[in-house]
Structures are given as structure tokens and as C-alpha cells.
Design a protein around this nucleic acid. Sequence first.
DNA 1: CGCTTGCTTGAACAGCATCAACCTTGGTGG
DNA 2: CCACCAAGGTTGATGCTGTTCAAGCAAGCG
Lengths: 234, 234
Amino acid sequence: MRKLPTFRPLEPEQLSFLEGVKRGERRFEAGATLIHEGAASRELYTLLSGMAFRYGTLSDGRRQILNFLMPGDFVGLQERVDGQSPHGVELLTEASVCVFPVEGLWEIFRHQTTLAFDITWLAAHEERIVDGNLVSVGRRTATERVAMLLIHLYKRSESLRLVDEHGSVPFPLTQQHIADALGLSLVHTNKTLRRLRLLGVCELRNQRLRLPNPRALQQVADYYDRPLAPRPLI
Amino acid sequence: MRKLPTFRPLEPEQLSFLEGVKRGERRFEAGATLIHEGAASRELYTLLSGMAFRYGTLSDGRRQILNFLMPGDFVGLQERVDGQSPHGVELLTEASVCVFPVEGLWEIFRHQTTLAFDITWLAAHEERIVDGNLVSVGRRTATERVAMLLIHLYKRSESLRLVDEHGSVPFPLTQQHIADALGLSLVHTNKTLRRLRLLGVCELRNQRLRLPNPRALQQVADYYDRPLAPRPLI
DNA sequence: CGCTTGCTTGAACAGCATCAACCTTGGTGG
DNA sequence: CCACCAAGGTTGATGCTGTTCAAGCAAGCG
């Protein structure tokens, strides 16, 4: 994965340091909960394969998905800063993660200035994604929101070289996930997707997403193509 | 400000280091734009007094406020991570800020492990606030959202000892700001506030906010009182 | 004073939610 | 092999929540 152009290459010394800090790799099955809402965790993760999402819920069960996690994303920083995690992390697919003990975070800050900086970069980067989602949910119409989400997830998959020969990327979300991410009802999400399909701007078949007309979709979404800067991979 | 119990006290050595890194203090008038949307800034700020907000806008002018900034908040981390800032920061009141050059951030990471860790903590903390806002905008009703915002801002003011003898805190927002923060229209925000006022749970008079019945308001908002951990002040 | 900015209120409308079915698909076990 | 079931997707009808449009009002300020 480190060879992908999205990721900034690390020095050999940094890599070996990380090897020393990491506790190991672990595999989870689809649907598993990586971090429980309200629970304290003593570990941090980097997602190596698969997809997941962070979410918060209200007392009566209404759920809001905060963002989606893809390979290379760092999980658990927000959770760690004080005792317990205010939100949960759940897996959409089978996934493997790299596990770090929280003490490892401290070690990195003490001995690897650049890596520490990278972690802060990742935290800030994730906040920007959440910022973007908040703008969508607060100010975009249902159609714009759905379009935005599809583009956003497609671009991220693209940067991870997950596009297959037909131009489709993995898309393990149910319509309920889309609804929960966009602050919409399940039914309305379904009808909005249908409209976009009829417009010929998206195709969803057996867990894969294809965008036959990205330009048109971007116009629908009021989306501006910002080139994504190469990011660190911890 | 450092004497407030919300802020974790710093070592004398850390304080002197920060003194060396900071570029100075600066004063801005109400309504000024601290960071322009889409512009690159070479500085970071800590808000010392006054209030501000971060926001994003769509191409047709729809605006979403991402969060509000109060004394002690660190401004500009998200902006700095890659070239240009995707959102703006505007002042609600006259304000004074402490200015750091971006190189100073790097200096802190190299020489002050604990402070570097603190900065990351602040970034993660701010993301949690945005997370909370996203849950509100995505899944709460208009009344719940307004209630939530009032409680949240009141609590933050409280932790900064801004409550006066009548139990009121500064509240420099217009109804338009509230609407933009909650993803509501101005008119509906007005009517919702009116209902809360009639319920006797909030009072808004000449830029001040009072909550005569916090318990009732918290119930309306589906709010859980999480004690706020002492935070670092950079 | 007149002007601007922010607040207030009513009326009409629309976007999205809710309710209630029904359909399809893949997996399971008899 | 097929009956059954659960999960996810689809669709129409109805109505509430919140938007938009349109005024009018109050207060601060040149």
C-alpha cells in the first residue's frame, strides 16, 4: 500500500520505528464494532484493508454517520484524547487493521518529530472531511448530498487504486448507511438514488459503484475538484 | 486566562518557549475576517478574547457555520495542513489573538513533545465538537438543535468564567448565525427561539443569554452532561 | 431624520418524513 | 432440491416540518 502515490514515502528509519511500536495486525469480520460508543479503548488502529464508518447516536436510536474510513485512515485519535469515546466505529466489510498501543503514540511524539507532525496532519485532515459533511448535511439538498457522497467516496477509492477495468469501485454501503450519513430518511434516499440513476450519472450493482458521467454529477453536487495532497501513512 | 481551571497549567519552561515562538498579539474589530475562504495563511492564532466562527460556503452563497471559537481555541491548524484553507474564520466581536508563524509549529514539535501532543489534542477536541454539530444537524429536530446550541455555548462560556451575576453569558450571535450553524432558515430559527422563550427555558437580551431552567432545556436537547476535561492552552 | 441591520409574524408551499406494502436476493436447513 | 426466512431494495399515499415570500417593526447610527 505504501507504494501508492497518495501516500508520502517514509524514511527507512521511520518505518523500523513504527514496526517496533506496533502491536500487530488483526482481522475483523464485516459488521464488527471496532470501537464501542462510550467505551474507553487502549488502542489505536490504522485501517489496512476494508471499509468502516464512525457514527454517533442519540438516546432514542437516531444515528448519524460522521465519516467513512478507508485503507490508510488512522482510527482512534479522537477517542483517546479523554477517557471514553463519544462515537463508535463499525466495519462495513471484512477488514484488517494495524494495532498500536496508546503508549506508542507517546513514543512517536517523543522520538519521531516528523511522524508526530504527520499524525496531527491526519487528525486535521479528518476534521476537514467532517467539515465537508457538515456543509452537505446543513446546506445541500437531498440530491446534492447524495451526489456529493458518491463523488467523494469514488475519489477516495480512486486514489487507492480500487477502480476495476469497468470503472467501478467497491461500495459496501446499504441505503440505510447513505441515509444515516446524509441526515435523510431511508425512503427518500432510495428515491433520490433512483433519480440519479435515471439521469444516468450513477450505477450501483452488487456492491460496486460506477459513475458514467462524473462531470454531470459534479455539477449536481456543487463539487469543486481539489487535488488531494499526498498524505502520510502511519 | 491561564489561571482558569479549564486550562491545564504549563511548566515555566514551556511558557518561555512559547513566548519565544510567538510573533505577537493583534487586535481585530468585530466582523473582521481572520482567515479567508480559499486563501493560504502563513500564521496560526490562539484566540485570547472575543468570539469567532469557522464556516464554509457553497458556490451560490449558502453558508454553513462549522463551529464557534472562544478564548483559548487554536485557529488555523486545519487551514495549514495543505496550501489553502477550505473554510473561513470570521469574528463575531472585537477580539485579540496571539499570533504564531507556521514555522513556530514546527519548532514546537521538534523541541516540546508535550506541547506538540497538546496541539494534537486540541485538533482532536475540535473535531469532536464538529462531530457533535454534525449529529445535531443530521438527526435532531429544529427545537432540539437550537436547545443544544444554547446549552453548548453556555457551558463553554461557563468554563471560561464569563457568567455574570444574573447568570447570563455573552451571546454575540444574530439569529442568522444560529440558522447558519444549525442548517435552518432564518425564519424558522426565529419561530423556534420564540417557542423556547415561551417555555421559559431561555432569555436573549442585548447580546446576552440566560438559561432559567437548564434541566428542562437539556431534556429538550437530548443532551448528556459530559464533564469537560482540562485542556491545554497554547 | 432617514437608513441600515436585525427581529417578528403570517400565509402559502415544498421537500422530505412516515406509514404501509410488496418485491428481490442470497443463505439455511429440512 | 426446494421451502423458508431475513436483509435489503422499491414504490405509492399522506402529511408534517421547515422553507420561501412578503410585510411590518424596533433600535442604533450617521
